[in-house]
Amino acid sequence: MDMTTTIDDKTSKALGPLPAGHPAVRKGKVGVLLLNLGTPDGTDTKSMRRYLREFLSDPRVIEMPKLLWYPILHGIVLNTRPRKSGDNYKKIWNTERDESPLRTYTRSQAEKLAEALRDLPDVIVEWGMRYGNPSTADAVEKLMAQGCERIVMFPLYPQFSATTTATASDQLFRALMKIRAMPSVRTVPAYYDEPVYIEALARSIEQHLAGLDFEPEVILASYHGIPKPYFEKGDPYHCHCVKTTRLLRERLGMSDKKLITTFQSRFGAQEWLQPYTDKTVERLAKEGVKSIAIVNPGFSVDCIETLEEIAGENAEIFHHAGGKNFSHIPCLNDSAEGMAVIEAIARRELMGWV
């Protein structure tokens, strides 16, 4: 029976008889929507400007009155930053697919999750971005077209922040506001202290270190930073990051001198969460530390902030300041360990719906 043009018996009984000429109805499915931050469509200035405009116009990302921020954004930032950002993206661009690694990995995560959930025939997996393409609205539309009456929204951010997780929820509900027959929705909570997540990180670190020809004296757990005022207003992000590192230390049997928390990717003049990753890398090298490694527990997949900023810029900073051995530990990405995390949490959040 062709499900694209007919209604199955179970759904038909629930709906009752339909009037003549009623359009085909597909119902009874549950969607799992993986959402990541976002990506430009290309490295050219126009694509970068479009992406940065959407990203930096989000009031949860930049908490400044529009009257103050928009002249800076449109008068300075969008006229200077796109070219520089585009050049940085070119260094890590997936030229085979002509897309960013973040898009490549997020798509793969969705495909692998769909395969892992094949025992749940009523579950459909889609993926989207908060900023850029494929958009959250497009992903929701695809799920609705396939008969999803319920959606589990899975923001791919282990630690909660209003600048990331909350913006994903905002965008999802903006899309739902335009849908008359709106589906029921669940949102996956932050999973920074989930045992399956800590175990996956620990194993990935152990495997990576086992393949090095040196032993790092210090390992930095580097998280994307947020402005300090956001933390002071109650954003739990800092606490989530610190706990992630503590749990990792306990699992790996490392001291607080061996595995330390730092914060990267600050933007603008105001103070952000400290200690800063780049300043710490420079300080360690100047103090005589010759070997370090950096892991990024707050990123579900490798992206511009990990591949270019950490593996590129920070490696250069370390070597320039006198360091010798530097290694970036890849994100979980679509590895077996990373997929174990996503699958376990998705199955838990689907309970009661499938």
Rank of each mutant, 00 (worst) to 15 (best):
I72W: 15
V242F: 04
I329N: 12
Q207I: 01
S12F: 08
R348N: 12
G28T: 10
K286E: 13
T80D: 00
P17N: 05
C331W: 12
L143D: 00
L247K: 02
E308Y: 10
I304Q: 15
A14R: 11
R283L: 10
P101N: 04
E250H: 05
E194N: 09
L172M: 15
Q264V: 03
M254F: 14
M177G: 02
R97S: 14
A24W: 06
P189R: 05
P216N: 06
A110H: 12
T262G: 07
V25S: 03
G312Q: 15
E313P: 03
Y191R: 07
L156I: 03
T43H: 10
A24Q: 15
E305P: 14
N88F: 08
E99P: 10
P275L: 04
P59T: 02
I151D: 11
C239P: 06
V295P: 06
G21H: 11
D41Q: 15
V196Y: 13
R50S: 12
D119G: 04
D138C: 00
R130Q: 14
K142D: 01
I151A: 06
E250N: 12
N333G: 09
K233V: 01
R107W: 12
R246V: 02
L33A: 04
E337I: 01
Y89L: 14
S85D: 03
A346L: 07
N88S: 01
S47N: 13
L68P: 02
E96H: 08
A344E: 09
A137V: 10
K84H: 00
E111A: 00
L52P: 14
V25E: 04
T106Y: 09
